[in-house]
Write a protein that binds this DNA or RNA. Sequence first.
DNA 1: CGGTCTTTTGACTAGTCTCAAGCATTGTGG
DNA 2: CCACAATGCTTGAGACTAGTCAAAAGACCG
Lengths: 198, 198
Amino acid sequence: MKRSRSCLLLSGFACTYKLTAGGKRQIVSFNIPGDIPDLQSLHLKTLDNSVATMSQCRVGFVTHEDLRNLCTRHPRIAEAFWRETLIDAAIFREWVMNVGQREGTSRMAHVLCELMVRLKAVGLVEDHACDLPITQSEFADALGFTTVHVNRVLQQMRTEGLIFTQGTRLTIPDWEKLKQVGEFDPTYLHLENGQAAA
Amino acid sequence: MKRSRSCLLLSGFACTYKLTAGGKRQIVSFNIPGDIPDLQSLHLKTLDNSVATMSQCRVGFVTHEDLRNLCTRHPRIAEAFWRETLIDAAIFREWVMNVGQREGTSRMAHVLCELMVRLKAVGLVEDHACDLPITQSEFADALGFTTVHVNRVLQQMRTEGLIFTQGTRLTIPDWEKLKQVGEFDPTYLHLENGQAAA
DNA sequence: CGGTCTTTTGACTAGTCTCAAGCATTGTGG
DNA sequence: CCACAATGCTTGAGACTAGTCAAAAGACCG
């Protein structure tokens, strides 16, 4: 179905996902405030994924017509939007590697690092802690694990002192350690100001 | 490192890959004739992946300066390039799902279907057959399997009549069956003329 | 023809899944 | 304000997919 507008996530958490023929869900990205989850629809006629909220969200809508006018009138803006979609692609590539090559703790640590850095970039991290309203079953769908396995991995990470959780609040006691376990190198996020440390 | 030009694959097969800190390789996409594997470098300063050839290749180079001029003078071309990168992203999303949710035969079948359809689109498929100079170890790196496992999966697929190989030539005896096993729906490739059947 | 790369095989191991149940937390209606 | 859904988290045991290690057999190339 062709969409005539894109949405901008103002607050809250969402995710982009796809379903297999067998009905299994793969979350292909987490969307945080500032993201435009369906910017691609500006140039692709058919949608090949869906978006779901993971918490209460506020969203803004922009019509494709307005976006297109903006792009023609201000090439620099067009370039910036294009660049945004290229960064999304870079993140997908990293996820392919994460799901394909890393196991258990390492895989989990990597997405947590990614989330922390991205959230930090929009000011949602304080003292290595942030609010993360993502259920274990959502993590499972994102990592290609089962909920049961995510639970066990998280427990292990807690006992190893890699993470600390209270409700939806996540705290990273030792950022360097988590980064190392997740083999995390933020280059692929292409942040302007290489704020590698969260 | 900043690149000042992009390359167009004229003939032969290549792949885009990333390495984990531990040295494991994840192939994130196969590049076929007509592809511009590093088009992204036009707007991203740092490269977060590498490209390798899998066979003899002929490539053409275009400087970013020329590309940028082309884009400013012909907005439609800029739009087309942007669209290409969006399709790449759609393929990455599908790969995340493939690696995250499908197992063994199904996972393998899916990439084979994708390759067939993409090769067909550039005229490299005849009678459900094509030349595929991809080693089992390369498939392994693309699928997140080991070479040993790829070998066993392929053997099973041969005995099941899903594929037929002689050297680097791959023939698909029963396209519908392969599509079904791989849960393959070509929507995500966003081909202009929905040539779903290869 | 020797050397290298690729494919194939076997036996054993490990990571992850499945099924199944119990517990905790939260929000809601009576 | 409490009871009870509903949802999410935790646990255990057994099964299965895929990995590891090791080596042999083919294929390709200078």
